[in-house]
Design a protein around this nucleic acid. Structure first.
Lengths: 225, 225
DNA sequence: TCATTGTTGTTTGTATACATTATACATGGA
DNA sequence: TCCATGTATAATGTATACAAACAACAATGA
């Protein structure tokens, strides 16, 4: 249990390595909501001193992934149905903004990438490997936010998306939804290519709405256990 | 020069005091873009050790107010016209979302507060004291985002607003704009009270557009100097 | 039995010491 | 003069040491 490990490949300050490690552990659920993050413990586990651990926690704190209790330290933030609805409400708006801006600003090169990503996604769904599908999904959305040319938007959308990383697999694993997912992606893709803002925006909206449904029902399930 | 001081009133961990202090110094322009934040220097200046300084910088880093250069430390992030347009593009969308949600969800109590804040703002503009006007403006917008009941939205909108804190006074000081500002606020206020999403959203949009114009022209002025 | 207080251990908060690296400047040679 | 190299300095990156606060639990008294 709790067997996350540091990724030594990276050539970064330890604080950033620790930050990425803890972040991933939280987002994938290896560190559970409510779990305390004790500095010496983490330091021993990851083989570093307390300093980089603390600095990583400061960043996680600002990102909202952990909450600080004075003189008691950090613990993994609880995810409530309410907080997730809040996140999704904002994310929906920003995703819609993204595709609208993408309609206006996408380059020819990016259009090609988008087409490839779309096909890649369809292929991935046939493969049934959830992590491959998830990756293809991320790729597709990345291309869209990149096409907006708005760095800040990209950063915010990515951040909001990652808040739901834990639940990503819920709706990706559900094969009965795959056709729907493909159709939604295709609709967004075609809307952007055609420069049809309304069409793309509407598709992006329903795309999020469907995710919301899956995730919320999953949360209710977890709550009951 | 550079005469910001620590605010000792606060009863918080030093890292948070330092964070707030540096943040304010950056947002008000006391720490200029490009300026290096050297740890020992700041530590001496604020009378603390390097540790809280470093932890504060980690948070500023994640917030995008400083950028880290490996082995060289932190410096205050540059604000370019592009980065500001990016911020405003996102903020406009989120402000519009805020008033739309406020239309649906505002309580009777909040309606009363909103009315008062609106009148307060009008009174403030007659007083000509920019900081009073700014405060009334913040109050008004706070009530609106609070009325959405969406904590995440509130946090993001506040953060984006603060990015432009430096330029706030530009459009607030310009008395020729006061009538327009009052009218815009009134329009937003009445739209929300009437539950008229379209009306309120449109007003909020033009409100941001006007701010954008003032701020962009100000940036171009500063650039020329 | 219950409440209060004392004590001990654990954890965070802060400071400082040590290691490493980048930069600047000087020195020497072509 | 210009370039290269070496050295010194100063800053960050990391580890550790010390202080203060909190929590748990035991002991004591009513």
């Amino acid at each position: 249990m709790n067997d996350f490990q540091i990724d030594m490949d990276e050539f970064l300050p330890l604080r950033d390595v620790v930050f990425n490690t803890l972040r991933k552990a939280i987002l994938t659920g290896q560190l559970r909501p409510g779990e305390r993050l004790m500095e010496v413990h983490l330091a021993n586990k990851l083989g570093v001193s307390r300093t980089p651990i603390r600095e990583a926690i400061r960043k996680l704190e600002l990102e909202g992934l952990v909450i600080m209790i004075p003189r008691r330290g950090a613990e993994v933030a609880q995810i409530t149905e309410k907080s997730l609805k809040d996140v999704l409400e904002v994310r929906k708006t920003l995703d819609v903004l993204s595709v609208e801006l993408a309609c206006e600003r996408i380059s020819e090169e990016e259009k090609k990438q988008l087409k490839e990503a779309c096909e890649e996604f369809e292929k991935a769904t046939r493969g049934k490997d959830a992590s491959v599908i998830a990756k293809a999904d991320v790729k597709l959305h990345d291309i869209i936010v990149d096409a907006t040319g708005n760095q800040r938007l990209k950063q915010l959308v990515n951040n909001l998306s990652e808040q739901m990383y834990r639940y990503r697999f819920v709706y990706i694993k559900d094969e009965s939804q795959h056709e729907k997912l493909i159709a939604e992606h295709r609709e967004i893709y075609e809307g952007i290519l055609a420069g049809d803002k309304q069409r793309a925006a509407k598709a992006a909206g329903t795309h999020i709405d469907n995710q919301e449904k899956s995730i919320i029902s999953q949360i209710r399930l977890e709550k009951k256990r």
